[in-house]
Design a protein around this nucleic acid. Structure first.
Lengths: 194, 194
DNA sequence: GTCTATATAGTGATAGAC
DNA sequence: GTCTATCACTATATAGAC
């Protein structure tokens, strides 16, 4: 199933989750994938190529698990879908951890590397709009501006909570509580502000 | 006024704001401070010593500017003090930028460096409690748990917005709007939840 | 205290055999 | 496609003169 290239990308995701984008050493990646450094360079040209491919790989995976559902479960209502989408990012599974870590690193790196900002801004916009849309399904009468702002607050909060979790300042269960409550608060505000 | 050591620490703060904690090169720091690398090592022992001293230095500075006030202005009410404290972190002055950048880097680095976590958790706790206290001044009847959670959401959101700002995904003025509105939302929730 | 070398080690990247 | 060497360069850190 997994060809060698995929094996390397999975290994890269694990190394990034462990050391960060800026802490990734090609030699460590090679060891993690069980291959030589030369093979890494054969497949990815250079360090930046490794990073680009891995970030794409992680992004694709995130899209998948985000829309993944238990086929037996009843279909979610709009509010349930919103909660699931946001809380899915606060879970202690290796893949979510890897994805959240990579995303946080991408953001943190973009502070010092303008080359990354364009991609990041685009991904952020898509993410914000997805949440705004879900909020709109719960409150169809709310104005577009109010929805957009609520979405931005929720996604920015999620990033803040996620980083606190990953950096050991906040237990995961507490992060989830805070996030769920924030959704509640924003929704109730959208109800009142007609 | 500024002795040579302080000059180096100021230079280090600038370099960290430009390159990040993990991107700081001793040679660049030496050039920025206008001294030799050997002198840096003379004063700070090693790379980690530079980082520790600089982070402390930045932390002290943050404490100062946070409590800095215009002496002519009328005293702030509880709500104004809350808003000022939080919005002060979203300003485009070199020092706030340096401090916010360093704080974000400290958090991002702690994801991969457990040694940093203890300091970080302590600083986070102090910061959360300060905000909880200010919230309590606005709503003296609110329960301690509700105050603590609102404070955590506000500070985590601030970190998320700050990182988005610094990474070029969010204009500063918009970040300020979102933050101000979040304060409003949390305060109105504290009013309702008796 | 401060500088000019310079030692030492790590790290990205390539050459060339198989 | 994959490996074993190995090069070239960068970065931390130190020695020793002033």
């Amino acid at each position: 199933m997994a060809d060698r290239r995929t094996t390397m990308l999975e290994a890269a995701a694990r190394v990034i989750a462990r050391r960060g984008v800026r802490g990734l050493r090609v030699e460590e990646l090679a060891a993690e994938a069980g291959v030589s450094t030369a093979l890494i360079y054969y497949h990815f040209k250079n360090r930046q190529g490794i990073l680009r491919a891995t970030l794409d790989f992680i992004n694709d995976r995130a899209g998948v698990y985000t829309t993944d559902r238990d086929p037996d479960a009843p279909p979610l209502d709009a509010r349930g879908e919103l909660e699931q989408t946001l809380l899915l990012e606060l879970q202690d599974s290796p893949q979510v951890r890897e994805n959240s870590t990579a995303w946080g690193e991408l953001r943190a790196s973009a502070v010092f590397d303008p080359d990354l900002r364009e991609d990041l801004a685009r991904a952020t916009l898509v993410w914000d709009q997805e949440i705004a849309e879900l909020l709109g399904k719960v409150h169809p009468t709310a104005g577009a501006g109010a929805l957009a702002q609520a979405a931005e607050r929720l996604t920015a909060l999620l990033e803040g909570l996620s980083t606190r979790w990953l950096s050991g300042s906040l237990p995961l269960s507490h992060a989830r509580t805070l996030m769920a409550e924030a959704i509640e608060v924003e929704l109730s505000r959208l109800s009142r502000a007609v």
